[in-house]
Design a protein around this nucleic acid. Sequence first.
DNA 1: TTCCTTGCAAATCGTTTGCATAATG
DNA 2: CATTATGCAAACGATTTGCAAGGAA
Lengths: 139, 139
Amino acid sequence: MALKHSRQRDVIKEFLMTRKDHPTADVVYMNVRQQIPNISLGTVYRNLTLLADIGEIARLRVGDGVDHFDADTSLHYHFICSECGSVIDLKMDNIDHIVDQVNAHFDGNIAGHVTYFYGTCKDCTCKSRGLAPQSQPTS
Amino acid sequence: MALKHSRQRDVIKEFLMTRKDHPTADVVYMNVRQQIPNISLGTVYRNLTLLADIGEIARLRVGDGVDHFDADTSLHYHFICSECGSVIDLKMDNIDHIVDQVNAHFDGNIAGHVTYFYGTCKDCTCKSRGLAPQSQPTS
DNA sequence: TTCCTTGCAAATCGTTTGCATAATG
DNA sequence: CATTATGCAAACGATTTGCAAGGAA
Protein backbone atom coordinates (compact mmCIF):
# COMPACT_ATOMS: atom_id res chain seq x y z
CA MET A 1 0.00 0.00 0.00
CA ALA A 2 2.83 2.38 -0.77
CA LEU A 3 1.54 5.86 -1.39
CA LYS A 4 2.22 7.28 -4.82
CA HIS A 5 2.27 10.92 -5.68
CA SER A 6 -0.74 12.43 -7.46
CA ARG A 7 -1.48 15.91 -8.64
CA GLN A 8 -5.16 15.68 -7.73
CA ARG A 9 -4.28 14.84 -4.14
CA ASP A 10 -1.86 17.76 -3.97
CA VAL A 11 -4.42 20.19 -5.33
CA ILE A 12 -7.09 18.93 -2.94
CA LYS A 13 -4.83 19.31 0.08
CA GLU A 14 -3.62 22.72 -1.05
CA PHE A 15 -7.15 23.95 -1.57
CA LEU A 16 -8.16 22.73 1.87
CA MET A 17 -5.26 24.59 3.43
CA THR A 18 -6.47 27.87 1.99
CA ARG A 19 -9.87 27.49 3.63
CA LYS A 20 -10.78 27.83 7.25
CA ASP A 21 -14.50 27.21 6.79
CA HIS A 22 -14.36 23.39 6.72
CA PRO A 23 -15.81 22.70 3.25
CA THR A 24 -17.72 19.57 2.30
CA ALA A 25 -16.54 17.11 -0.35
CA ASP A 26 -18.83 18.72 -2.86
CA VAL A 27 -17.44 22.19 -2.24
CA VAL A 28 -13.92 20.82 -2.57
CA TYR A 29 -14.93 19.23 -5.86
CA MET A 30 -16.43 22.43 -7.25
CA ASN A 31 -13.34 24.44 -6.41
CA VAL A 32 -10.68 21.95 -7.38
CA ARG A 33 -12.25 21.65 -10.82
CA GLN A 34 -11.01 25.13 -11.56
CA GLN A 35 -7.49 23.71 -11.59
CA ILE A 36 -8.25 20.17 -12.77
CA PRO A 37 -11.44 20.47 -14.84
CA ASN A 38 -11.92 16.77 -15.43
CA ILE A 39 -11.29 15.55 -11.90
CA SER A 40 -14.09 13.30 -10.70
CA LEU A 41 -16.12 13.47 -7.52
CA GLY A 42 -15.02 9.92 -6.73
CA THR A 43 -11.40 10.96 -6.77
CA VAL A 44 -12.14 13.83 -4.43
CA TYR A 45 -13.86 11.48 -2.00
CA ARG A 46 -11.09 8.89 -2.28
CA ASN A 47 -8.40 11.43 -1.54
CA LEU A 48 -10.24 13.16 1.28
CA THR A 49 -10.75 9.77 2.90
CA LEU A 50 -7.14 8.82 2.32
CA LEU A 51 -5.81 12.10 3.72
CA ALA A 52 -8.07 11.77 6.74
CA ASP A 53 -6.94 8.18 7.32
CA ILE A 54 -3.25 9.12 7.35
CA GLY A 55 -4.01 12.08 9.58
CA GLU A 56 -3.10 14.90 7.20
CA ILE A 57 -6.59 16.36 7.42
CA ALA A 58 -9.54 15.89 9.75
CA ARG A 59 -13.02 14.69 8.92
CA LEU A 60 -15.67 16.62 10.86
CA ARG A 61 -19.07 15.16 11.60
CA VAL A 62 -21.16 17.92 13.04
CA GLY A 63 -24.56 16.30 12.86
CA ASP A 64 -25.80 17.91 9.67
CA GLY A 65 -25.53 14.69 7.69
CA VAL A 66 -22.61 15.88 5.57
CA ASP A 67 -18.93 15.41 6.24
CA HIS A 68 -16.78 18.50 6.51
CA PHE A 69 -13.00 18.55 6.09
CA ASP A 70 -10.38 20.55 7.91
CA ALA A 71 -6.70 20.93 7.01
CA ASP A 72 -5.99 22.07 10.56
CA THR A 73 -5.45 18.89 12.54
CA SER A 74 -4.34 20.61 15.73
CA LEU A 75 -6.57 20.29 18.78
CA HIS A 76 -9.44 22.71 18.61
CA TYR A 77 -13.21 22.74 18.83
CA HIS A 78 -15.99 23.78 16.49
CA PHE A 79 -19.17 25.79 16.60
CA ILE A 80 -22.00 25.07 14.15
CA CYS A 81 -24.52 27.78 13.43
CA SER A 82 -28.00 26.29 13.55
CA GLU A 83 -29.24 28.91 11.11
CA CYS A 84 -26.69 29.17 8.33
CA GLY A 85 -24.84 25.90 8.95
CA SER A 86 -21.41 27.46 8.97
CA VAL A 87 -18.70 25.72 10.95
CA ILE A 88 -16.44 28.02 12.94
CA ASP A 89 -13.18 27.34 14.80
CA LEU A 90 -13.19 28.08 18.51
CA LYS A 91 -10.35 29.38 20.61
CA MET A 92 -10.55 27.70 23.98
CA ASP A 93 -8.67 25.54 26.40
CA ASN A 94 -8.51 21.80 26.14
CA ILE A 95 -11.47 20.16 27.86
CA ASP A 96 -10.19 16.59 27.93
CA HIS A 97 -10.67 16.60 31.67
CA ILE A 98 -14.32 15.75 31.09
CA VAL A 99 -13.15 12.24 30.31
CA ASP A 100 -12.07 11.88 33.92
CA GLN A 101 -15.65 12.34 35.04
CA VAL A 102 -16.66 9.35 32.96
CA ASN A 103 -13.85 7.04 33.97
CA ALA A 104 -15.00 7.23 37.55
CA HIS A 105 -18.16 5.26 36.79
CA PHE A 106 -17.33 3.40 33.60
CA ASP A 107 -15.87 -0.04 33.08
CA GLY A 108 -14.71 0.13 29.47
CA ASN A 109 -11.81 2.02 28.00
CA ILE A 110 -12.37 5.62 26.94
CA ALA A 111 -10.20 6.68 24.03
CA GLY A 112 -11.53 10.19 23.67
CA HIS A 113 -14.55 12.36 23.11
CA VAL A 114 -16.21 14.39 20.42
CA THR A 115 -17.60 17.77 21.37
CA TYR A 116 -19.04 20.53 19.31
CA PHE A 117 -21.05 23.60 20.17
CA TYR A 118 -24.10 24.94 18.40
CA GLY A 119 -26.21 28.06 18.46
CA THR A 120 -26.41 31.20 16.37
CA CYS A 121 -23.29 32.77 14.90
CA LYS A 122 -22.50 36.47 15.08
CA ASP A 123 -23.82 37.22 11.60
CA CYS A 124 -27.08 35.33 12.04
CA THR A 125 -27.63 36.92 15.45
CA CYS A 126 -27.23 40.35 13.84
CA LYS A 127 -29.52 39.51 10.95
CA SER A 128 -32.32 38.40 13.24
CA ARG A 129 -32.11 41.84 14.83
CA GLY A 130 -32.31 43.56 11.48
CA LEU A 131 -28.68 44.61 11.56
CA ALA A 132 -26.25 44.26 8.68
CA PRO A 133 -24.01 41.20 8.82
CA GLN A 134 -20.36 41.75 9.68
CA SER A 135 -19.03 39.63 6.83
CA GLN A 136 -20.13 37.29 4.07
CA PRO A 137 -19.73 33.52 4.25
CA THR A 138 -16.51 32.45 2.58
CA SER A 139 -18.19 29.81 0.47
CA MET B 1 -50.99 20.67 12.39
CA ALA B 2 -53.09 19.17 15.16
CA LEU B 3 -51.71 15.83 16.18
CA LYS B 4 -54.04 12.87 15.74
CA HIS B 5 -53.78 9.61 17.56
CA SER B 6 -52.23 6.63 15.78
CA ARG B 7 -51.58 3.09 16.88
CA GLN B 8 -48.32 2.86 14.96
CA ARG B 9 -46.98 5.89 16.79
CA ASP B 10 -47.98 4.43 20.14
CA VAL B 11 -46.35 1.11 19.42
CA ILE B 12 -43.16 2.78 18.23
CA LYS B 13 -42.91 4.91 21.34
CA GLU B 14 -43.72 1.98 23.62
CA PHE B 15 -41.11 -0.18 21.97
CA LEU B 16 -38.51 2.53 22.35
CA MET B 17 -39.29 2.85 26.04
CA THR B 18 -38.50 -0.82 26.60
CA ARG B 19 -35.03 -0.43 25.16
CA LYS B 20 -32.02 1.25 26.62
CA ASP B 21 -29.65 0.47 23.75
CA HIS B 22 -30.70 3.33 21.45
CA PRO B 23 -31.90 1.38 18.40
CA THR B 24 -31.79 2.65 14.83
CA ALA B 25 -34.89 3.23 12.71
CA ASP B 26 -34.35 -0.11 11.04
CA VAL B 27 -34.19 -1.98 14.34
CA VAL B 28 -37.35 -0.21 15.47
CA TYR B 29 -38.99 -1.27 12.21
CA MET B 30 -37.98 -4.92 12.59
CA ASN B 31 -39.33 -5.10 16.12
CA VAL B 32 -42.49 -3.11 15.69
CA ARG B 33 -43.49 -5.39 12.83
CA GLN B 34 -44.08 -8.13 15.36
CA GLN B 35 -47.08 -6.16 16.57
CA ILE B 36 -48.05 -4.40 13.33
CA PRO B 37 -46.85 -6.72 10.55
CA ASN B 38 -47.74 -4.41 7.68
CA ILE B 39 -46.30 -1.20 9.08
CA SER B 40 -43.98 0.48 6.62
CA LEU B 41 -40.44 1.73 7.10
CA GLY B 42 -41.60 5.17 5.97
CA THR B 43 -44.12 5.33 8.78
CA VAL B 44 -41.44 4.39 11.28
CA TYR B 45 -39.20 7.17 10.02
CA ARG B 46 -42.04 9.67 9.96
CA ASN B 47 -43.03 8.93 13.53
CA LEU B 48 -39.51 8.83 14.89
CA THR B 49 -38.92 12.23 13.31
CA LEU B 50 -42.21 13.57 14.64
CA LEU B 51 -41.60 12.28 18.17
CA ALA B 52 -38.11 13.75 18.13
CA ASP B 53 -39.42 17.09 16.89
CA ILE B 54 -41.95 17.39 19.70
CA GLY B 55 -39.33 16.30 22.20
CA GLU B 56 -40.82 12.99 23.27
CA ILE B 57 -37.73 11.10 22.19
CA ALA B 58 -34.18 12.08 21.31
CA ARG B 59 -32.36 11.57 18.03
CA LEU B 60 -28.74 10.59 18.58
CA ARG B 61 -26.07 11.24 15.99
CA VAL B 62 -22.96 9.49 17.14
CA GLY B 63 -20.92 9.72 13.98
CA ASP B 64 -21.57 6.24 12.63
CA GLY B 65 -23.75 7.52 9.80
CA VAL B 66 -26.97 6.11 11.25
CA ASP B 67 -29.40 7.85 13.54
CA HIS B 68 -30.15 6.24 16.89
CA PHE B 69 -33.22 6.97 18.98
CA ASP B 70 -33.61 7.24 22.73
CA ALA B 71 -36.84 7.38 24.72
CA ASP B 72 -34.92 8.84 27.64
CA THR B 73 -34.83 12.58 27.03
CA SER B 74 -33.31 13.49 30.37
CA LEU B 75 -29.84 14.98 30.37
CA HIS B 76 -27.22 12.29 30.02
CA TYR B 77 -24.23 11.42 27.89
CA HIS B 78 -23.33 8.52 25.65
CA PHE B 79 -20.40 6.26 24.99
CA ILE B 80 -19.96 4.59 21.60
CA CYS B 81 -17.84 1.47 21.35
CA SER B 82 -15.52 1.76 18.39
CA GLU B 83 -15.46 -2.01 18.02
CA CYS B 84 -19.02 -3.24 18.34
CA GLY B 85 -20.80 0.07 17.77
CA SER B 86 -23.00 -0.21 20.82
CA VAL B 87 -24.25 3.00 22.39
CA ILE B 88 -24.15 3.06 26.17
CA ASP B 89 -25.64 5.53 28.69
CA LEU B 90 -23.15 7.21 30.99
CA LYS B 91 -23.69 8.21 34.57
CA MET B 92 -21.86 11.44 35.14
CA ASP B 93 -22.29 15.01 36.22
CA ASN B 94 -23.50 17.72 33.90
CA ILE B 95 -20.63 19.26 31.96
CA ASP B 96 -22.42 22.32 30.64
CA HIS B 97 -19.74 24.46 32.24
CA ILE B 98 -17.59 23.84 29.18
CA VAL B 99 -19.83 26.28 27.37
CA ASP B 100 -18.53 29.04 29.64
CA GLN B 101 -15.04 28.51 28.28
CA VAL B 102 -16.31 29.24 24.80
CA ASN B 103 -18.39 32.27 25.63
CA ALA B 104 -15.29 34.04 26.84
CA HIS B 105 -13.90 34.30 23.31
CA PHE B 106 -16.94 33.96 21.08
CA ASP B 107 -19.22 36.58 19.60
CA GLY B 108 -22.25 34.52 18.60
CA ASN B 109 -24.84 32.91 20.80
CA ILE B 110 -24.16 29.42 22.12
CA ALA B 111 -27.30 27.38 22.64
CA GLY B 112 -25.64 24.19 23.76
CA HIS B 113 -23.18 21.48 22.95
CA VAL B 114 -23.05 17.89 21.80
CA THR B 115 -20.60 15.58 23.47
CA TYR B 116 -20.11 11.87 23.21
CA PHE B 117 -17.32 9.58 24.30
CA TYR B 118 -15.79 6.75 22.37
CA GLY B 119 -13.42 3.89 23.01
CA THR B 120 -13.78 0.20 23.79
CA CYS B 121 -16.64 -1.07 25.92
CA LYS B 122 -16.22 -3.54 28.73
CA ASP B 123 -17.19 -6.56 26.65
CA CYS B 124 -14.94 -5.72 23.73
CA THR B 125 -12.04 -4.98 26.06
CA CYS B 126 -12.49 -8.42 27.59
CA LYS B 127 -12.77 -10.14 24.22
CA SER B 128 -9.56 -8.62 22.96
CA ARG B 129 -7.86 -10.19 25.97
CA GLY B 130 -9.36 -13.57 25.23
CA LEU B 131 -11.76 -13.41 28.17
CA ALA B 132 -15.44 -14.25 28.05
CA PRO B 133 -17.77 -11.28 27.60
CA GLN B 134 -19.84 -10.21 30.60
CA SER B 135 -23.10 -10.04 28.69
CA GLN B 136 -24.57 -10.23 25.22
CA PRO B 137 -25.73 -7.20 23.23
CA THR B 138 -29.45 -6.58 23.70
CA SER B 139 -30.17 -6.27 19.97
C1' DT C 1 -66.26 16.15 6.66
C1' DT C 2 -61.76 17.69 7.52
C1' DC C 3 -57.20 16.75 7.44
C1' DC C 4 -53.79 13.91 9.75
C1' DT C 5 -51.69 9.16 8.86
C1' DT C 6 -50.58 5.29 6.46
C1' DG C 7 -48.53 1.92 3.01
C1' DC C 8 -46.16 1.64 -0.98
C1' DA C 9 -42.87 2.79 -4.18
C1' DA C 10 -40.05 5.94 -6.23
C1' DA C 11 -36.86 9.56 -5.39
C1' DT C 12 -32.93 11.94 -2.94
C1' DC C 13 -28.58 12.66 -1.03
C1' DG C 14 -24.05 11.76 0.37
C1' DT C 15 -20.71 8.48 -0.29
C1' DT C 16 -18.55 4.21 -2.02
C1' DT C 17 -17.09 0.96 -5.45
C1' DG C 18 -16.04 -1.91 -9.85
C1' DC C 19 -13.71 -1.56 -13.85
C1' DA C 20 -10.67 -0.46 -17.56
C1' DT C 21 -7.14 3.02 -18.36
C1' DA C 22 -3.46 6.24 -17.05
C1' DA C 23 0.28 7.67 -14.22
C1' DT C 24 3.97 6.84 -10.73
C1' DG C 25 8.18 4.77 -8.80
C1' DC D 1 7.20 -3.72 -14.70
C1' DA D 2 4.44 -3.75 -10.60
C1' DT D 3 1.19 -0.97 -8.37
C1' DT D 4 -1.30 2.86 -7.11
C1' DA D 5 -4.44 6.46 -8.79
C1' DT D 6 -8.02 8.14 -11.96
C1' DG D 7 -12.50 8.98 -14.48
C1' DC D 8 -16.78 7.28 -15.19
C1' DA D 9 -20.87 5.34 -14.01
C1' DA D 10 -23.33 2.27 -11.47
C1' DA D 11 -24.32 0.79 -6.78
C1' DC D 12 -25.31 1.77 -1.95
C1' DG D 13 -27.46 2.69 2.50
C1' DA D 14 -30.09 5.79 5.13
C1' DT D 15 -33.75 8.76 4.89
C1' DT D 16 -37.44 11.44 2.63
C1' DT D 17 -41.38 12.20 -0.21
C1' DG D 18 -45.60 12.00 -3.54
C1' DC D 19 -49.72 9.98 -3.82
C1' DA D 20 -54.04 7.70 -3.25
C1' DA D 21 -56.47 5.35 0.37
C1' DG D 22 -57.55 4.80 5.40
C1' DG D 23 -58.60 6.53 10.07
C1' DA D 24 -59.27 9.94 13.84
C1' DA D 25 -61.71 14.13 15.67
